[in-house]
Each structure stands twice: as structure tokens, then as C-alpha cells.
């Protein structure tokens, strides 16, 4: 039996120390999100501000491998704008007619197209780790669904940094203190601050505004179907309510001759 299995069996039989460490992290405060609730939907200007933050701040380290540039049309970008955004990035072009994959020692590249997925900031995991003191910046596509109370947690994390750790807390080199990260030590430097990004629409550029916008954007990347889903849900449930009411009347009628 190899090590992985042993770890699993231990984790399963005993729980882990890390799980206990995680339990002293405060529960993130519940925020009001435009996309939560039965009639929740994504506000397009918020999404676009969020995308701007992703583009100018997060995308330096974090990928969005499940999202294609063409999906940005949901944010109100036109076909040509999407093309321009995609073309800012390069993807491997494949071998040329002679089967050569290198041009002067570099991989043959072509500009990304709208049908391409978001290009990762790093070529591979090793490159990502070596640029980030050994830590791997996770892909953000599904982050809003991959944590308990995802959006609230992300908001709490982004706004939960302290310049100095509390008295008596030993912070490792290159780590930052955060109230909400399991173990309180996170390798990501505080990514957002007041005036981090200048919004085109004149929205005040505060830390909390930045956090709200980028979390909304990430909620969209995780559940792009959310709006369709909720709209269809309301119609379906109203329909079922009517149908069930009718079936109740029919049931009473059919059963009435028994009594």
C-alpha cells in the first residue's frame, strides 16, 4: 500500500490536524449578492468591473481554464471586442508544414481566438510554483463553488488581510496573515486595495467595491447558467403549482364517490 492510500485512510479514520486548524477560522459574514435568491441575476456593469479586476490584477497568477473568450459576450462585449481581448494572448500554433514546432528556439505561437479558453498565466504547474515561492495559484474558474459559501468566503478572504499578525503568531517567510484562510497563512500577497483599478464607469474604486465586483465575476465564471436556471425554475415551479392544484381537484372529485 502506498503513501497516498495511507494518508487517505488516516484522514478518513482520524480526521486530520489540518481539519482542526481549519475549524478555528471564523465563518465568513453573509453578504448581499445580486445573484443570490430565487430571482437573483448578474448585473452586467458589475461583471464587467469584475472582469477588469481579473484582467488587471488576478490574471497575473490565476487562470480561468474553463472559460472561453467567446463567453465574454455574456458580459456585453461585442464580437470584435472579444476578438481583441482574445488576441492579446498567444496559444501554441502547432507544427508547421515541415513538422517544426519551434521558431528560433521558441514554440510557434498564434494569437488566441474567441473560441480558445482563457490562456493560463503560466505554461505549467512547475513554472507557476517557481514564480510564487513554491505555492500554486489555483485556477479560479470554479472557485466560487469550490469553497463552502464560496462568494462570501472569497469576499472575506480578499478583505481579510492584516499587515501584522496578532501577537504571538509566527508567520513564515513570504507568507501573509489572513483571518479567513485555513491556518491564517496565505502565500498570496493582499491582491486588492483602495484605488487598485480605475473603473471606466466612474464607480468609486474602494477595496470593498473591488472585492464585490471580482467575486461577482467569479460567481459568473463558476455558474454561467445561473440566470437561465433561475428563470426557468420560476416558470417550472409556477407551472407545477397549477398542475398539482388541478390534480388535487381531480383527485378529490374521483375519490368523492367513495365516501
Amino acid at each position: 500500500m502506498n503513501k497516498i492510500v495511507l494518508t487517505a485512510v488516516m484522514a478518513f479514520a482520524l480526521g486530520t490536524g489540518a481539519a482542526q486548524a481549519a475549524s478555528n477560522v471564523p465563518t465568513p459574514a453573509a453578504q448581499k449578492w445580486g445573484f443570490s435568491g430565487i430571482v437573483g441575476h448578474f448585473d452586467q456593469p458589475t461583471l464587467r468591473r469584475g472582469f477588469q479586476i481579473y484582467r488587471e490584477v488576478c490574471s497575473g497568477c490565476h487562470g480561468l481554464r474553463l472559460v472561453a473568450y467567446r463567453n465574454l459576450k455574456d458580459l456585453g462585449f461585442t464580437g470584435d471586442e472579444v476578438k481583441e481581448i482574445a488576441a492579446e494572448h498567444e496559444v501554441f500554433a502547432g507544427p508547421d508544414e515541415e513538422g517544426e514546432v519551434l521558431v528560433e528556439g521558441d514554440l510557434r505561437m498564434r494569437p488566441a481566438r474567441p473560441t480558445d479558453k482563457f490562456v493560463n498565466p503560466f505554461a505549467n504547474e512547475e513554472a507557476a510554483r517557481s514564480s510564487n515561492v513554491g505555492a500554486l495559484p489555483p485556477d479560479l474558474s470554479l472557485m466560487a463553488k469550490a469553497r463552502k459559501k464560496g462568494p462570501d468566503y472569497l469576499y472575506a478572504l480578499l478583505t481579510g488581510y492584516h499587515e501584522e499578525p496578532p501577537e504571538g503568531f509566527e508567520l513564515s517567510d513570504g507568507m501573509y496573515y489572513n483571518d479567513y484562510f485555513p491556518g491564517h497563512q496565505v502565500a498570496m500577497a493582499p491582491p486588492l486595495a483602495d484605488e487598485m483599478v480605475e473603473y471606466e464607469d466612474g464607480t468609486p474604486a474602494t477595496l470593498t467595491q473591488h472585492a464585490r465586483d471580482v467575486v461577482t465575476f467569479l460567481a459568473w465564471t463558476a455558474s454561467p447558467e445561473l440566470q437561465d436556471r433561475k428563470r426557468m425554475g420560476i416558470k417550472t415551479l409556477l407551472f407545477l403549482l397549477v398542475l398539482t392544484g388541478m390534480m388535487y381537484a381531480l383527485k378529490r372529485k374521483i375519490w368523492s364517490d367513495l365516501h
Binding site: 390534480m247 381537484a249 381531480l250 372529485k253 368523492s256 364517490d257 365516501h259
Partner: peptide, 23 residues
């Protein structure tokens, strides 16, 4: 409803048919 059903069977029948058709 029971008295309606027994008192005026035809009306009860048509109401039942209508409900069945509509549902």
C-alpha cells in the same frame, strides 16, 4: 361534494370529465 355527486349524478360526471380533460 358527496351530496352533489349523489344528488345530481350528471353534473358530477361532467365536472369530473372536465377536470380530467383539463388536467
Amino acid at each position: 361534494t358527496a351530496s352533489t355527486a349523489s344528488g345530481k349524478p350528471e353534473e358530477g360526471e361532467s365536472r369530473r370529465d372536465f377536470l380530467l380533460l383539463a388536467t
